[in-house]
Each structure stands twice: as C-alpha cells, then as structure tokens.
Amino acid sequence: MGLTLAALADAMPGAVAQGLIWSIMAIGVYITYKVLDIADLTVDGSLCTGGAVCLMMIVNGHDVWVALIGATLAGGACGLVTGLLHTVMGIPALLAGILTQISLYSINLKILGQSNRGLMAIAYDLPVTSREVNDALIFLAITAVLIIVFLYWFFGTERGCSLRATGCNENMAKAQGINTNVNKVIGLAISNALVGLSGALLTQYQGFADINMGRGAIVVGLAAVIIGEALFGRLFKNFALHLLSVVIGSVFYYIVLQTVIWLEFDPDLLKVLQAGVVAVFLAFPYWKGKYFKKIKTSKKGGVTNAGN
C-alpha cells in the first residue's frame, strides 16, 4: 500500500470506464430530473433490473447484444410502471418511483434467483470487461456519443419538443393540446431504459450482478448532472452539449472517487461523502434565493416605514 502516484495512475482507466458506464444512467436521470422536472427514484431498482436481465440472458445462452437490448427494454418497462402509477393512479411522482423501486427488489431477486451472481468474463465475448479496459473505454465512449446523438434528435422532434414543454410548463403544454400524461410516461420509460442499459454494462464490466448494485444510484446520477452543470453550465448552451457535460460530470465524479479511495479514505464512509456533496450542491440555489429575498424584503420594509 502507500500513496504512490503509480497506483493512482493505474486506477485511472478503470475509474474513467466506470464513470462512462454510470454516465449512461446519469443521462437517464437528466431526462427525468432536468427535462421532465421529476425526481424519479425508480433508478435505484431499474439499474439492477438491467444488470440482472442481461446476466441471466447471457448465462442462458442468448447473444450478448440481444441481452443488452433485453436489459434496455426491461429498464424501460420499470419506467413505464412508475409512469402509470403516477399518471393513471395519481400517485405523486416521487412516491410512485419509490413504490416501483421497492417492488423491483423482489423482482430482481426472482430474476437473479439469488442475491448475487457472477458472470464469467472469459466464457463470453463481452464488449465491456474490466480485463480489457482499453477496449471497454472505446466501446463505452462510442455508446455514450450514440446515445447523445439519438436524444439530441429525439428532443428536436415534435414529440420531443412537447416533452420539454411538459417539463417546463405543464399549463402551457396542456393549453397547446399536449397530452402531458403520455409524455411523462414516455420520458420515464426512456430514462429508465438508459438506466437498464447502464446496469447491464456495469454487470459485464464488474463480472457480477448484485441485488444492491443500484443502491444510491439516483445520488450518483444527480452528482453527475450537478457537477456537469457546475463545470460547463455557463459554457454549454446546446442540448447535446448539456448531455455531454453530464457524461464528463460522471467521469469526473469517478476520478475524484478513485482519488479519495487512493488517499485511504474509509470506504465505509463513501456514501456519506457522496450524499453530503450532492446535498450542498442542491442547497446552493435555495441559499442564493434566500439571500436575494432578504435584500428585497428589507427594501420593502424601508418603503413601508417611510410611508408610515
């Protein structure tokens, strides 16, 4: 052990690969959190669903690529359930996500058959493994770019524009004849499809699926979105560049995480650190608003006093 720079440098490609894998999930979080203005907690469950479906399909002899598609569709189905709970049954979005997430715990256990299952990387021709990090990096970078291109196209279509309007101003969207409920369901399904794909790639990379692999995923996603915004918010105006900033945010996050581990920070405390950082960043706009409000009220107070 010891703080050798060589050890840190050795760990970097792996950190970047993990960052890219999680960035696909973070893009999903961006769609719900930023575009639709919904905090969707389904992701903590659907990430594992994607991993579990991918693993079981590969183990049962399906093609690796078919397994990736299967995982993506399974993730999308999870988002569909949350969307229907929210729109058809009128359950608040946050709670709908939690309900899906908790039920997915049981479903994921049933898919995997046990709480943890390994995937022999040598036995299959996997595009992403920790054994071949350089190949994995190339594949993941291309995948991330393709996803950004696809979403850039989609959110520029009539349907995509109406989705953005739904998240921005629901009153306006309805007045323009947009069925906002359908759009929310579509958005949640696309978002969780990406999360499922991310879970599948993570399972391949680490060589196993675990029932707890998605725990706290929403926090990682938010961290990536927030870091990306902090780094490039003023620079990037284009939607595709926003998504790119999420990817960079996620990679940045994993590099920092790797560095913290390298500094021999107690790994048990990582989640506290993670939550703490996100909490502070989320609090920022609130504190800012409070500060400005204070100035405003004090001015008003002054005017009232003068009137009296």
Binding site: G156, E158, G160, C161, I178
Partner: peptide, 19 residues
Amino acid sequence: ENLALAKRRGKIRTLLPGI
C-alpha cells in the same frame, strides 16, 4: 420553439422535426 409548439396545437406530435 414556443411558436412551433403552438403551430401544432391539436395535432398529434410525431417524430418529424419539431420546427
């Protein structure tokens, strides 16, 4: 984009370009 949304009021939103 706002105008394009209004232009399509009452129309089914397709995968054609939004504007």
